[in-house]
Nucleic acid binder design. Structure first.
Length: 718
DNA sequence: GGGCGGTACTG
DNA sequence: CAGTACC
DNA sequence: GCCC
């Protein structure tokens, strides 16, 4: 197994490994919890020796791992010990260790065959980005079964609903996902807080409960029998959910018996009303759940950062930190769900799908998508993208190489090639299993032939020839464009003049203001700061703000709001509730004067065009007493545009692009001022109408209008 | 072969 | 206007 | 660069 991870491990000579994570799946569908730390010897990590002394609790019983089947490097500690993730076979799994490569390469049938027990390592496809990787031509779907007659009225049938499909075969999952999306619903392959419906074929309550990680996630979403969807598709309206409810409450009767019984059926309209009502109440009650509360707590924390903390002068730092903790927990949850998802169908009610008129069906789908369907799954904003700090990506080695190439193209003027690399890299980053071949890579959405070839080369040779050619040149370009205000164009121009160092620039080039500042503070500005420092800086601004007008509100945006452990700059959004007839006009000017006078702001990078506008944006350099110089970005925002602005200045950039692209596919336009409908973009029409603002005040309203699950900031890190 | 986010400051 | 910036 |  010339696995990348193995190579990395092999490069180190002396070390012990701390076995920190042990996550695996049992053949019966149970999932192991993380286990304790222990120290193992190197040879135990090669996969040749059994892990002996480790016991793993499944919650129900204790089992002994019999063999290591997969090892991946998680982290190298300062003391050179390593934290690794290990997948283990359990005692009951006997001698059946075909080399995993073989198993992986088999296109499809392997999943259904007897090896389907060791699911965790076998399925490299447990992530959406790789959704189509194993789409085998052999996949058969019975269209007649999944979708009989369609009425015209069912087009937006699932609007506002967000599904998670659990424990069903991949191809069935794909088909159903498509059906849902065609009708305006959203589908996530990872469970997230915004999921409104979990659909499952599993009726065994105990098993289901376990798969739902012991009830933790059943809170927001109801679990319905997949038949609910089938019936909805068949009849063109959403049937009463209660009848199909599997979890949290299980009706004594089997859903089957109810499926077609006439007496349970109401008129479409009745049902729709009933349904809408139910949905509404669910939303209301969901606001009481733990996570929603945390999200909201953080919102108000940051929006306010006021009243309560002005007495002691210390912002509620604690409450912010605990949101990070909660996000970690959330990550774990997602990870577990991902694993569960990776399992082969435990119960496959439709295993005997017959061969329908497949080709026709495919054409139908294609046409449907073209006409009105938006493939939500292809938008990164549709899924949770949490911060990954505690794990190392299984494709880290590949990502590193691609990122070098990406860096290179960034210093080129080939912007779109750069974007292409960026997309491919984000897609690969979401994978949770190592890529085995160029072929496999090629099937990832966002990875085309060229990048797939490069991935192949990296897998096979461990390196990328292309990278070797452009090294020294690229270093200088990176050095130069690291100066604030210097981009690829200028960097190349300088280099073609023969400059190679920052001193060359200092001594030979007359720089405009922003670049001069950028060069002056080159090192300081590349030093990222802690969240605490961000809070201290914010507090300074906040204090001055309160002296101007106590009703001003301030929020920290950017990477801080996304929960990153360190930040490159500080983004501050300032607004004021205008219900009392006053607003924050002119505040930017007063604020800047104060901050400059007190010596906090040391330099300006860009000033707002119109200081008297309610929308202003300032960029500059500030420093705490005895602190490093920091980049600070201050905005004032009309009160009713705060939601749009929060989204725009929370990011990250990839997330924003994804959202905005999705908006434009829906003939909407999203920017920092709001979400706008029907913008006239006439070819010859010089006058482009702004369009009508359909949402702007809150993030929730905008997500809702876009049909995107309402992502808390911590999940906007693609 | 066209599209790929939307906006704003600088010089 | 091109270039660079912000997320 | 990738995707339609």
């Amino acid at each position: 197994m010339t696995n990348i991870t193995a190579q990395r491990l092999a490069r180190r000579s002396t070390f012990y490994k701390r076995l920190r994570y042990v996550e695996s799946a049992l053949s019966d569908g149970h999932v192991l919890k993380r286990s304790h730390s222990t120290v193992v010897n190197r040879h135990e990590l090669t996969g040749t020796l059994p892990v002996k002394r480790s016991r793993y609790s499944t919650g129900d019983s204790d089992l002994v791992a019999s063999q290591v089947i997969d090892v991946k490097l998680e982290e190298v500690e300062p003391d050179n010990s390593m934290i690794v993730g290990v997948n283990v076979k359990l005692e009951d799994v006997k001698e059946r260790d075909k080399p995993r490569q073989q198993q992986i390469k088999e296109p499809d049938p392997g999943y259904q065959s007897d090896e389907s027990t060791d699911t965790l390592i076998l399925d490299p496809l447990d992530h959406e980005a790789a959704e189509n990787v194993l789409d085998s031509p052999k996949d058969r779907i019975n269209p007649a079964k999944a979708e009989p007659l369609r009425s015209q009225s069912d087009v937006g049938m699932f609007h506002g609903l967000h599904f998670h499909l659990l424990g069903m075969p991949r191809r069935r999952l794909n088909l159903l996902s498509e059906r849902i999306m065609e009708r305006d619903g959203a589908v996530s392959h990872a469970y997230s807080n915004s999921v409104t419906h979990i659909l499952s074929d599993i009726h065994d309550v105990a098993k289901l409960q376990f798969m739902l990680t012991r009830g933790k996630i059943g809170l927001n979403a109801r679990v319905l029998d997949t038949k609910w969807l089938a019936d909805a598709l068949q009849h063109g309206f959403c049937p009463d959910e209660q009848i199909y409810l599997i979890y949290p409450k299980v009706t004594a009767e089997s859903p089957e018996s109810l499926k077609t019984s006439e007496n349970t059926r109401k008129s479409p309209k009745q049902l729709r009303n009933h349904f809408i009502k139910r949905r509404k109440s669910r939303y209301e009650s969901s606001s009481d759940t733990e996570k929603d509360d945390k999200y909201r707590a953080m919102e108000s924390d940051s929006i306010e950062l006021d009243a309560s903390d002005e007495e002691d002068g210390v912002p509620e730092i604690e409450s912010k930190n605990h949101t990070i903790a909660s996000s970690t927990q959330h990550d774990d949850l997602n990870k577990i769900i991902e694993q569960v998802k990776a399992q082969p169908e435990l119960i496959d009610l439709d295993a005997s799908e017959d061969d329908g008129p497949e080709q026709k069906e495919k054409d139908d789908n294609a046409e449907m998508s073209r006409r009105r369907g938006i493939q939500y799954e292809k938008f990164l904003c549709m899924k949770s993208n949490p911060i990954m700090t505690d794990t190392v990506n299984p494709n880290e080695f590949i990502i590193e190489k691609l990122e070098e190439l990406h860096e290179f193209y960034k210093s080129t003027n080939d912007h779109w090639r750069e974007v292409g690399y960026q997309k491919a890299i984000s897609a690969i980053k979401t994978l949770q299993t190592p890529l085995r071949s160029a072929d496999e890579a090629r099937r990832i959405f966002g990875v085309g032939g060229r990048i797939a070839d490069k991935i192949g080369e990296i897998i096979n040779t461990g390196q990328l020839q292309k990278l070797k050619n452009l090294d020294s040149e690229n270093e200088v370009l990176k050095l130069f464009s690291g100066i604030y205000g210097v981009g690829p164009s200028l960097a190349r121009r300088w280099m073609s003049k023969g400059y190679t160092t920052l001193d060359d620039i200092r001594n030979n080039v007359t720089l405009p203001e922003s670049q001069r500042i950028g060069l002056k503070y080159y090192d300081e500005l590349h030093n990222r700061m802690s969240r605490e420092e961000v809070e201290q800086i914010a507090q300074v601004v906040k204090n001055e703000l309160m002296k101007i007008d106590e009703k001003l509100e301030m929020t920290i945006g950017g990477s801080y709001r996304r929960g990153l452990p360190d930040c490159g700059d500080v983004d501050l959004l300032i607004t004021r509730n205008d219900e009392d007839g006053k607003n924050h006009q002119g505040v930017m000017k007063q604020l800047l004067k104060r901050l400059v006078d007190m010596g906090f702001i040391t330099n300006h990078l860009a000033l707002p065009g119109q200081f008297e506008d309610l929308r202003t944006r300032y960029m500059g350099i500030c420093a705490l007493p005895n602190g490093l110089h920091r980049h600070i970005d201050i905005l004032t925002v009309p009160y009713n545009e705060m939601g749009a602005c929060l989204i725009a200045y929370t990011g990250n950039d990839i997330f924003n692009r994804s959202l905005r692209l999705l908006a434009s596919k829906k003939k909407l336009r999203l920017n920092q001022m709001g979400l706008f409908a029907e913008v006239l973009r006439g070819a010859s029409r010089a006058k482009i109408t702004e369009g009508n603002c359909i949402a702007s005040k809150t993030e929730e309203a905008i997500f809702e209008a876009l049909g995107v699950p309402c992502r808390p900031p911590h999940e906007r890190n693609p």
